[in-house]
Design a protein around this nucleic acid. Structure first.
Lengths: 235, 235
DNA sequence: GGCGCTATGTGCGCTGCCGCGCAGACGAGG
DNA sequence: CCTCGTCTGCGCGGCAGCGCACATAGCGCC
């Protein structure tokens, strides 16, 4: 696994399209640079754009009370943000926040809808991705209910590393606590355990995954389940 | 609210279709009587049928370990089981179990796919329902994480009453524990609290909702959020 | 009428996470 | 160099839910 090297920047959902459909899809896209912590979509507003991350990633965050919220999805170059539009709906209850800064392809909502109608291949790909997201959400619900913070943290780190295409990325414990829906102190405890085990190293927001294999063992089965599900449905 | 009276048996997803589409959809359906606890779908198998409950309801259950599982969705006459097929996938990671016995309309997978291709109205309705399910799953994930058993139980009872169209239905504490992902004892505690408050009455599996209003107050906001979401997206 | 199964209620010690408050440690900027 | 803000670590009391074990009570069945 190369350390901090960026993979070639493309989006797998688009890349799988046949030549002709791909070209037309790309024509409808505009390259943008996503900025960390930017809110790409807020619930209750119309969805103006869809995003295909190429070397960036996006969190889906479900607010519940005024106080509490929970990350329920992570979108990188394996997927897209904006599936609601493919379902004929122009909103979603989840907030979309840039988790990893970097390039993405952006398409206007109307253009996306038009392209979907024109390209069967795109439509099929997006539909399959939606099916994957459904399973992912269910998995996350159950995982969040049953698994301890340390395992969930390990899962989160693996998922993020996959999307960051780098073994080092930036994330503070405070932020992790928000994502996992626990106190920061809970993250401190779990993270020190993983660090003591030599699986990760971190310091003031610089997180490095040292041992993927060990991290997988420390994580719950949900990471593997996600991967398998993706391969089965989309890949 | 009439006590144990059955509402006229139809499925709202189908009912909203224009005359012509509705007729064709119904022609593809076969009326069936769902039996309590029957497994309509098991993960890893191809999905042979879709179901439109008319006066029955179905649980979506996400298994996680060999031991643990969690109910992540409830499908009554407001929806359908089998959305994966509409997304071009013939499987799902969730088990579908009959929660409330009663009549439903069943359609063969191939027929469903064909009808979707033929009827734009059906396709649009199903797509919107999928969008609703996505939000529902996210809501459930967050609710399960943050809310106490008593509130979640209240929510469950309200959702079930809506789908049973009756204020009395059959459900044991053991079963509730499985659905909510807690111990039976946890359900006992929460249920006695609700009973002491005069909101419900139960005895050996016979559950009666006495005060919807009070139950709503005891539940978390997630029940209302679900309803609102449904009205906004599908209704 | 008695037996056994199912459903419900209780007690006890434990664990994981909570809220809150505080302290040390590192880094950036003046 | 010093200050301030950010990030990380810890202690303490509390609570919700866990695992386990046991007690009671209806109900069906023979």
């Amino acid at each position: 696994m190369p350390s901090n090297q960026r993979a070639p920047a493309f989006n797998h959902l688009l890349k799988a399209l046949p030549e002709r459909d791909l070209r037309r899809a790309l024509e409808g896209c505009e390259p943008v640079e996503l900025v960390f912590a930017d809110v790409l979509y807020a619930p209750g507003t119309p969805m103006a754009h869809v995003y295909f991350p190429t070397a960036s990633f996006i969190s889906l965050i479900m607010p519940i009370d005024a106080a509490a919220s929970l990350e329920v999805g992570l979108i990188g170059d394996e997927g897209m943000f904006g599936i609601a539009l493919a379902l004929g709906v122009d909103g979603s209850p989840m907030r979309a926040v840039v988790q990893g800064a970097g390039p993405a392809l952006r398409m206007e909502a109307a253009v996306f809808v038009r392209e979907l109608a024109r390209s069967d291949a795109l439509h099929r790909a997006v539909d399959r991705y939606i099916a994957f997201q459904l399973g992912q959400l269910a998995q996350t619900a159950a995982c969040t209910r049953f698994h301890v913070v340390e395992a969930r943290l390990a899962r989160w780190l693996l998922m993020t590393q996959d999307r960051a295409h780098a073994s080092t990325f930036h994330v503070t414990q405070e932020f992790l606590a928000l994502m996992l829906g626990v106190r920061r102190v809970g993250v401190t405890k779990a993270a020190s355990a993983l660090q003591r085990a030599g699986l990760i190293r971190y310091n003031r927001g610089n997180m490095t995954v040292l041992e993927r294999r060990g991290l997988k063992a420390a994580s719950c089965g949900c990471y593997k389940a996600d991967r398998d599900s993706y391969d089965r449905i989309v890949g």
